[in-house]
């Protein structure tokens, strides 16, 4: 798994968006992780703890991981539905559909600062 490199990527991303001064007041990071992103929230949490401890930075920062379900949009009947059990069919008209509109994301959704 590549959770460790994702944690480094979180830090790199934050460091290019915010100043050191801002990051010193950071208290929490919210990730949005699609069910199709192949990221296991628990492993992500462990990797985050491991890296923050090893590199002695962002140590009191909380990581929250929000799982996003898979959503498809049907162009035939113009409706959106949630994919259950990885069966990619439109819930309203029953046609096979893999037009995924949500569920692959892997992004920083929110950053909380104590200021």
């Amino acid at each position: 798994m590549h959770e460790i490199s994702l944690v480094r990527s979180i830090f790199n991303t934050l460091e290019s968006e915010f100043s050191k001064k801002e990051l010193d007041t950071m208290t929490a990071i919210n990730l949005r992780v699609g069910l199709l992103s192949n990221v296991e929230p628990l492993l992500m949490q462990n990797a985050f703890d491991a890296v923050t401890t090893a590199e002695e930075k962002y140590q009191g920062v909380k990581l929250q991981v929000e799982l996003v379900p898979i959503e498809i949009h049907c162009n035939d009947c113009q409706s959106s539905s949630i994919v259950e059990n990885y069966k990619f069919v439109c819930a309203s008209c029953g046609k096979p559909n893999n037009n995924v509109v949500k569920g692959t994301e892997l992004l920083i959704h929110q950053v909380h600062f104590d200021s």
Partner: peptide, 19 residues
Amino acid sequence: KTARGTVTCDNTTMHLLKA
């Protein structure tokens, strides 16, 4: 502007696989 409180950043710049 200095980032304060809660900053919502739902756009691609915070996409972790962007590199």
